[in-house]
């Protein structure tokens, strides 16, 4: 369970309680959580560390999660290959589709997914995508 020791992840979420809940769950699994609570802070922290994966809330102050996603996946970006998962409270199909087009690896509805489920799915999605390589 703790073979994730030392792996850093970036978590951008503006609700501080929710950020705390997720941080606790991810920490339990052995990750080191780097967090940001608005879009700009998120973008600033993108290059500070090497992340195993990134989780972005979509509705954020200052810059949206989509903006951060674009920054990660833009032409010439050095962190293009880091898996990115979107977190959203409302399942706007248009936004979800757009996130996938830009290059998101998955998305979760805050409502229907418990933190544990999110971690399970993120891990299985990363493992699955690594198998064919």
């Amino acid at each position: 369970m703790n073979n994730n020791n030392g792996k850093k992840i970036l978590l951008v979420e503006d609700d501080l309680f929710l950020l705390d809940v997720y941080t606790q769950f991810f920490t339990q699994r052995g990750y080191i959580v780097v967090s940001a609570s608005d879009g700009e802070e998120g973008i600033n922290k993108l290059l500070e560390n090497e992340y195993y994966f990134i989780i972005l809330d979509i509705m954020l102050p200052k810059k949206t999660g989509i903006d951060i996603l674009k920054e990660i996946k833009k032409e010439g970006s050095t962190i293009k290959d880091v898996p990115v998962f979107m977190l959203t409270a409302v399942g706007y199909d248009e936004i979800i589709k757009q996130a996938f087009q830009i290059g998101a690896n998955g998305y979760f509805l805050k409502s229907s997914s418990l933190p544990n489920q999110i971690i399970d799915e993120v891990e299985s999605s990363i493992n699955n995508s690594q198998v064919p390589k």
Binding site: D15, F17, L18, V21, Y22, F25, A89, V90, K110, S111, L114, P115
Partner: peptide, 11 residues
């Protein structure tokens, strides 16, 4: 509504 409730659920 969902954000606070997901916090309740998380805790």
């Amino acid at each position: 509504i969902k954000t606070p409730v997901s916090i309740i659920k998380g805790y």
